[in-house]
Design a binder for these strands. Structure first.
Length: 264
DNA sequence: ACATTGACCTGAGAGC
DNA sequence: TGCTCTCAGGTCAATG
Protein backbone atom coordinates (compact mmCIF):
# COMPACT_ATOMS: atom_id res chain seq x y z
CA UNK A 1 0.00 0.00 0.00
CA UNK A 2 2.24 2.75 1.19
CA UNK A 3 3.76 4.80 -1.57
CA UNK A 4 4.19 8.56 -1.38
CA UNK A 5 0.48 9.50 -1.45
CA UNK A 6 -0.38 6.94 1.22
CA UNK A 7 2.42 8.11 3.48
CA UNK A 8 1.37 11.73 2.97
CA UNK A 9 -2.13 10.74 4.08
CA UNK A 10 -0.61 9.04 7.14
CA UNK A 11 1.36 12.19 7.88
CA UNK A 12 -1.77 14.33 7.84
CA UNK A 13 -3.52 11.72 9.94
CA UNK A 14 -0.74 11.88 12.53
CA UNK A 15 -0.97 15.67 12.44
CA UNK A 16 -4.69 15.78 13.00
CA UNK A 17 -4.85 13.11 15.68
CA UNK A 18 -1.65 12.98 17.68
CA UNK A 19 0.17 16.29 17.59
CA UNK A 20 0.92 17.93 20.95
CA UNK A 21 -0.45 15.06 22.96
CA UNK A 22 1.49 13.93 25.95
CA UNK A 23 2.97 10.46 25.42
CA UNK A 24 2.39 8.30 28.49
CA UNK A 25 3.70 4.92 27.38
CA UNK A 26 5.41 3.30 24.42
CA UNK A 27 5.21 -0.41 23.84
CA UNK A 28 7.07 -2.35 21.16
CA UNK A 29 5.19 -5.52 20.35
CA UNK A 30 7.67 -6.74 17.78
CA UNK A 31 11.31 -6.01 18.39
CA UNK A 32 12.23 -6.96 14.83
CA UNK A 33 10.57 -3.87 13.48
CA UNK A 34 13.12 -1.64 15.22
CA UNK A 35 16.27 -0.63 13.40
CA UNK A 36 19.28 0.74 15.25
CA UNK A 37 17.47 1.12 18.55
CA UNK A 38 16.18 -1.11 21.33
CA UNK A 39 12.63 -0.99 22.64
CA UNK A 40 13.91 0.37 25.96
CA UNK A 41 15.81 3.17 24.28
CA UNK A 42 12.82 4.06 22.14
CA UNK A 43 10.62 4.10 25.18
CA UNK A 44 12.96 6.46 27.02
CA UNK A 45 13.23 8.76 24.04
CA UNK A 46 9.48 9.09 23.52
CA UNK A 47 7.81 8.81 26.89
CA UNK A 48 6.90 12.07 28.59
CA UNK A 49 7.36 13.88 25.31
CA UNK A 50 5.04 14.81 22.46
CA UNK A 51 5.01 15.07 18.67
CA UNK A 52 5.69 18.67 17.79
CA UNK A 53 5.53 18.36 14.03
CA UNK A 54 5.79 15.97 11.11
CA UNK A 55 7.70 15.61 7.89
CA UNK A 56 7.72 13.22 4.96
CA UNK A 57 10.41 12.30 2.48
CA UNK A 58 9.49 9.77 -0.18
CA UNK A 59 7.91 6.86 1.65
CA UNK A 60 9.34 7.80 5.05
CA UNK A 61 7.34 9.58 7.72
CA UNK A 62 9.05 11.58 10.47
CA UNK A 63 7.57 12.75 13.74
CA UNK A 64 9.52 15.47 15.54
CA UNK A 65 9.87 14.86 19.24
CA UNK A 66 12.64 17.32 19.96
CA UNK A 67 14.77 19.60 17.82
CA UNK A 68 17.23 16.84 17.19
CA UNK A 69 15.04 13.80 17.69
CA UNK A 70 12.67 12.34 15.13
CA UNK A 71 10.69 9.13 15.17
CA UNK A 72 11.07 7.54 11.73
CA UNK A 73 8.38 5.29 10.29
CA UNK A 74 8.51 3.24 7.12
CA UNK A 75 5.50 1.15 6.19
CA UNK A 76 6.87 -1.62 4.00
CA UNK A 77 4.11 -3.13 1.89
CA UNK A 78 1.35 -3.42 4.46
CA UNK A 79 1.86 -0.77 7.13
CA UNK A 80 -0.50 1.95 8.35
CA UNK A 81 -1.38 4.05 11.39
CA UNK A 82 -4.49 3.72 13.51
CA UNK A 83 -5.61 6.18 16.16
CA UNK A 84 -8.31 5.06 18.54
CA UNK A 85 -9.78 5.52 21.98
CA UNK A 86 -10.62 2.11 23.28
CA UNK A 87 -7.54 0.17 24.20
CA UNK A 88 -9.23 -3.10 23.34
CA UNK A 89 -9.56 -2.09 19.73
CA UNK A 90 -5.85 -2.31 18.96
CA UNK A 91 -5.65 -3.64 15.42
CA UNK A 92 -4.20 -7.05 14.69
CA UNK A 93 -0.49 -6.88 13.76
CA UNK A 94 0.15 -3.77 15.84
CA UNK A 95 3.95 -3.60 16.16
CA UNK A 96 4.32 -0.35 18.06
CA UNK A 97 1.79 1.17 20.41
CA UNK A 98 1.88 4.72 21.71
CA UNK A 99 -0.44 5.55 24.60
CA UNK A 100 -1.29 9.20 25.10
CA UNK A 101 -2.11 10.62 28.48
CA UNK A 102 -5.57 11.65 27.30
CA UNK A 103 -6.50 7.99 27.00
CA UNK A 104 -6.20 7.58 23.25
CA UNK A 105 -3.71 5.43 21.36
CA UNK A 106 -1.72 5.43 18.17
CA UNK A 107 -0.85 2.06 16.65
CA UNK A 108 1.77 1.41 14.02
CA UNK A 109 0.43 -1.64 12.25
CA UNK A 110 2.47 -3.77 9.86
CA UNK A 111 1.21 -7.19 8.91
CA UNK A 112 4.14 -8.41 6.85
CA UNK A 113 6.82 -6.88 9.04
CA UNK A 114 8.62 -5.35 6.12
CA UNK A 115 8.35 -1.90 7.62
CA UNK A 116 10.75 -0.17 9.95
CA UNK A 117 10.73 2.01 13.03
CA UNK A 118 13.80 3.98 13.97
CA UNK A 119 14.94 7.37 15.19
CA UNK A 120 17.04 10.07 13.59
CA UNK A 121 18.50 13.27 14.89
CA UNK A 122 18.28 15.04 11.57
CA UNK A 123 16.00 14.42 8.60
CA UNK A 124 18.45 15.67 5.99
CA UNK A 125 21.19 13.46 7.34
CA UNK A 126 18.87 10.47 7.47
CA UNK A 127 17.88 11.04 3.83
CA UNK A 128 21.53 11.30 2.81
CA UNK A 129 22.56 8.22 4.77
CA UNK A 130 19.82 6.14 3.17
CA UNK A 131 20.84 7.41 -0.24
CA UNK A 132 17.40 8.74 -1.06
CA UNK A 133 16.88 11.04 -4.00
CA UNK A 134 14.81 14.22 -3.79
CA UNK A 135 11.16 13.81 -2.87
CA UNK A 136 9.00 13.23 -5.93
CA UNK A 137 6.36 15.69 -4.81
CA UNK A 138 8.39 18.65 -3.58
CA UNK A 139 8.37 21.40 -6.16
CA UNK A 140 12.06 21.75 -5.38
CA UNK A 141 12.62 19.00 -7.89
CA UNK A 142 12.65 20.77 -11.24
CA UNK A 143 12.44 19.18 -14.64
CA UNK A 144 16.18 19.39 -15.31
CA UNK A 145 17.03 17.56 -12.12
CA UNK A 146 14.33 14.99 -12.86
CA UNK A 147 15.71 14.34 -16.33
CA UNK A 148 19.27 14.20 -15.09
CA UNK A 149 18.37 11.53 -12.54
CA UNK A 150 15.74 9.46 -14.26
CA UNK A 151 16.89 9.46 -17.89
CA UNK A 152 20.31 8.00 -17.28
CA UNK A 153 20.91 4.28 -17.16
CA UNK A 154 20.10 1.42 -19.50
CA UNK A 155 17.25 -0.09 -17.51
CA UNK A 156 13.52 0.36 -18.01
CA UNK A 157 11.87 3.67 -17.24
CA UNK A 158 9.60 1.91 -14.78
CA UNK A 159 12.45 0.71 -12.62
CA UNK A 160 14.08 4.14 -12.87
CA UNK A 161 10.90 5.77 -11.58
CA UNK A 162 10.74 3.29 -8.71
CA UNK A 163 14.41 3.75 -7.80
CA UNK A 164 14.31 5.62 -4.49
CA UNK A 165 17.87 6.80 -5.03
CA UNK A 166 16.87 8.71 -8.16
CA UNK A 167 13.56 10.16 -7.00
CA UNK A 168 11.92 9.14 -3.73
CA UNK A 169 8.27 8.22 -3.40
CA UNK A 170 7.01 6.23 -6.38
CA UNK A 171 6.39 2.50 -6.09
CA UNK A 172 4.83 -0.13 -8.30
CA UNK A 173 1.31 1.32 -8.42
CA UNK A 174 2.04 4.98 -8.94
CA UNK A 175 4.86 4.42 -11.40
CA UNK A 176 2.31 2.55 -13.51
CA UNK A 177 -0.13 5.44 -13.23
CA UNK A 178 2.50 8.02 -14.17
CA UNK A 179 3.54 5.95 -17.20
CA UNK A 180 -0.06 5.53 -18.25
CA UNK A 181 -0.88 9.23 -17.97
CA UNK A 182 2.28 10.12 -19.90
CA UNK A 183 1.66 7.43 -22.55
CA UNK A 184 5.06 5.83 -22.05
CA UNK A 185 5.63 2.08 -22.12
CA UNK A 186 6.96 0.69 -18.80
CA UNK A 187 9.69 -1.27 -20.57
CA UNK A 188 10.97 1.68 -22.57
CA UNK A 189 14.67 2.24 -21.92
CA UNK A 190 15.17 5.24 -19.67
CA UNK A 191 18.09 6.61 -21.65
CA UNK A 192 16.27 6.32 -24.98
CA UNK A 193 13.34 8.56 -24.11
CA UNK A 194 12.82 11.85 -25.91
CA UNK A 195 12.71 15.15 -24.09
CA UNK A 196 9.04 15.22 -24.88
CA UNK A 197 8.49 11.86 -23.18
CA UNK A 198 10.41 13.01 -20.14
CA UNK A 199 8.48 16.25 -19.93
CA UNK A 200 5.19 14.39 -20.02
CA UNK A 201 6.46 11.99 -17.35
CA UNK A 202 7.55 14.82 -15.11
CA UNK A 203 4.23 16.61 -15.44
CA UNK A 204 2.27 13.39 -15.00
CA UNK A 205 4.23 12.59 -11.85
CA UNK A 206 3.32 15.87 -10.16
CA UNK A 207 -0.25 15.68 -11.35
CA UNK A 208 -0.78 12.05 -10.32
CA UNK A 209 0.70 12.53 -6.87
CA UNK A 210 -1.36 15.64 -6.21
CA UNK A 211 -4.55 13.95 -7.37
CA UNK A 212 -3.85 10.81 -5.37
CA UNK A 213 -3.23 12.78 -2.19
CA UNK A 214 -6.45 14.73 -2.70
CA UNK A 215 -8.25 11.42 -3.11
CA UNK A 216 -6.71 10.32 0.22
CA UNK A 217 -4.88 7.64 -1.76
CA UNK A 218 -8.17 5.80 -2.12
CA UNK A 219 -8.49 4.28 -5.60
CA UNK A 220 -12.28 4.60 -5.47
CA UNK A 221 -11.94 8.38 -5.17
CA UNK A 222 -9.60 8.78 -8.12
CA UNK A 223 -10.61 10.11 -11.52
CA UNK A 224 -12.12 7.63 -13.94
CA UNK A 225 -9.29 8.47 -16.31
CA UNK A 226 -6.84 6.64 -14.04
CA UNK A 227 -5.77 3.04 -14.62
CA UNK A 228 -5.20 2.48 -10.94
CA UNK A 229 -8.79 1.46 -10.15
CA UNK A 230 -8.79 -0.82 -13.21
CA UNK A 231 -5.78 -2.68 -11.92
CA UNK A 232 -7.02 -6.15 -12.56
CA UNK A 233 -6.43 -8.68 -15.22
CA UNK A 234 -8.34 -8.00 -18.40
CA UNK A 235 -9.61 -4.62 -17.21
CA UNK A 236 -10.62 -1.99 -19.76
CA UNK A 237 -8.38 0.96 -20.54
CA UNK A 238 -10.17 4.16 -19.41
CA UNK A 239 -8.75 6.03 -22.39
CA UNK A 240 -9.21 3.79 -25.40
CA UNK A 241 -11.39 0.99 -24.07
CA UNK A 242 -8.80 -1.60 -25.05
CA UNK A 243 -7.58 -4.29 -22.71
CA UNK A 244 -5.15 -3.41 -19.96
CA UNK A 245 -2.44 -6.04 -19.90
CA UNK A 246 0.21 -6.91 -17.35
CA UNK A 247 3.78 -8.02 -17.52
CA UNK A 248 6.80 -8.43 -15.29
CA UNK A 249 9.11 -5.44 -15.35
CA UNK A 250 12.20 -5.75 -13.17
CA UNK A 251 10.52 -8.21 -10.87
CA UNK A 252 7.25 -6.33 -10.37
CA UNK A 253 3.93 -6.65 -12.14
CA UNK A 254 3.33 -3.67 -14.41
CA UNK A 255 -0.16 -2.87 -15.71
CA UNK A 256 -0.42 -0.82 -18.88
CA UNK A 257 -2.37 -0.29 -22.06
CA UNK A 258 -0.35 -1.50 -25.05
CA UNK A 259 -2.41 0.60 -27.43
CA UNK A 260 -2.03 3.91 -25.57
CA UNK A 261 1.48 3.38 -24.29
CA UNK A 262 3.06 2.22 -27.52
CA UNK A 263 5.92 -0.23 -27.46
CA UNK A 264 9.18 -0.55 -25.62
C1' DA B 1 29.23 0.53 -12.21
C1' DC B 2 24.96 -0.72 -12.94
C1' DA B 3 20.86 -3.67 -13.67
C1' DT B 4 18.32 -7.67 -12.35
C1' DT B 5 17.16 -11.53 -9.19
C1' DG B 6 16.18 -13.68 -4.84
C1' DA B 7 15.34 -13.40 -0.03
C1' DC B 8 12.98 -11.45 3.66
C1' DC B 9 7.84 -11.75 6.06
C1' DT B 10 2.66 -12.95 6.48
C1' DG B 11 -1.91 -13.86 4.79
C1' DA B 12 -5.52 -13.90 1.14
C1' DG B 13 -7.26 -16.19 -2.65
C1' DA B 14 -7.11 -19.60 -6.44
C1' DG B 15 -7.02 -24.23 -7.81
C1' DC B 16 -7.30 -28.98 -6.79
C1' DT C 1 -13.11 -28.80 3.97
C1' DG C 2 -8.34 -28.54 3.67
C1' DC C 3 -4.20 -28.53 1.41
C1' DT C 4 -0.73 -26.28 -1.69
C1' DC C 5 0.74 -22.76 -4.62
C1' DT C 6 1.09 -18.00 -6.10
C1' DC C 7 1.05 -13.46 -5.32
C1' DA C 8 0.94 -8.86 -2.84
C1' DG C 9 1.50 -1.20 -3.38
C1' DG C 10 9.05 -2.47 -0.42
C1' DT C 11 13.94 -2.90 0.07
C1' DC C 12 18.45 -4.95 0.55
C1' DA C 13 22.23 -8.22 -0.53
C1' DA C 14 23.98 -11.08 -3.84
C1' DT C 15 24.62 -12.04 -8.66
C1' DG C 16 25.34 -11.23 -13.63
Amino acid sequence: MPELPDVEVFRRYLDSTSLHQHIGAVETLDEDILVGISSGQLQRKLERHEFKGTHRHGKYLFGRVKDSLWLVLHFGMTGYLQYYRNRDSAPRHTRLLIDFCNGSHLAYVCQRRLGEVSVADDVERFVAERGLGPDAFRARLGFDAFRERVARGRGSIKSALMDQGKVAGLGNIYSDEVLFQACVHPKAKANKLSDDDLKRLFEAMTEVLETAIEAKADPRAMPSTYVLPHRQKEGACPRCGGTVCHDKVSGRTAYYCPRCQGSA
